[in-house]
Design a protein around this nucleic acid. Structure first.
Lengths: 126, 126
DNA sequence: TTCTTTTTGCAATAGTGTTGCAAATATAAA
DNA sequence: TTTATATTTGCAACACTATTGCAAAAAGAA
């Protein structure tokens, strides 16, 4: 249960995720590997790798799915999250290495949080 | 330019938004008014009302669009945002009346932020 | 009422993501 | 190495949200 076999497709995706300091748009990954594997396969591999905590995913500003490699220090505390930044100009997205406390809300039990910051990255600032 | 005419459809949507303390799922609105207007019309009216700052919209945890009435105190400061809460059990969503500072990130210019908190509302806590 | 602009419905379309199933592949066991 | 089993893949079809173009309808100003 939960076994991830090291197929060619898995290796390709793994390589892409691990060699990137940025977050990767799933749409982008599907396009990048359209000659190597079916889009269904991309989605399914990402799903498995997320279960294995090799990567984590989040929903971007526009509602699209992004993934990024799992980094331990990001998740050390369950009371904090790291935000994701999305550049409105070049579209790049990345995990920010800062810890944001999940706000405490009376009468609510918070399980997870997703903070997306949109703006301009250093390369795209005029 | 930017005139919003008070058509029957506009009135219905306005009424729905203003009488609700919760955020409204756009999918939900399309269903609710399927006998009154076309789904295209729902999207277009919401777009206009957002431009007029009658409401604001955000992307929920699942990537779907939600709207809620615009409330002045939510946006008094440009350095802060209010989070949106989404119940994983009953699906309800609402604006939380708390102010979260938008984190300051060196080398990035942040224009907007979207914080979604997921969990269980008071009615759905066991 | 007439004229102009805005709004709407409709049908088609784009795009992301999912499902079922049979065939192919990886891995463990013999 | 071969065999057996469980996992993975491709494919095609589909579900669903959201958008577009255009002609007809409606709103509001003159």
């Amino acid at each position: 249960m939960g076994v991830v076999r090291k197929t060619k497709s898995v290796k390709l995706i793994l390589e892409a995720v691990e060699n990137s300091n940025q977050a990767l748009s799933v749409v982008e990954l599907v396009k990048r590997f359209e000659n190597n594997m079916n889009k269904t396969t991309v989605y399914r591999i990402l799903e498995r790798l997320e279960e294995e905590k090799v990567l984590h995913s989040f929903t971007g500003q526009n509602g699209l799915k992004w993934v990024a490699k799992y980094q331990d220090y990001f998740s050390s505390e369950k009371t904090h999250i790291h935000p994701h930044f999305q550049c409105q100009n070049c579209g790049k997205s990345e995990c920010l290495a800062i810890n944001i406390p999940i706000p405490n809300v009376p009468d609510y039990h918070i399980d997870s949080a997703n903070l997306i910051l949109s703006g301009h990255c250093s390369s795209c600032m005029s």
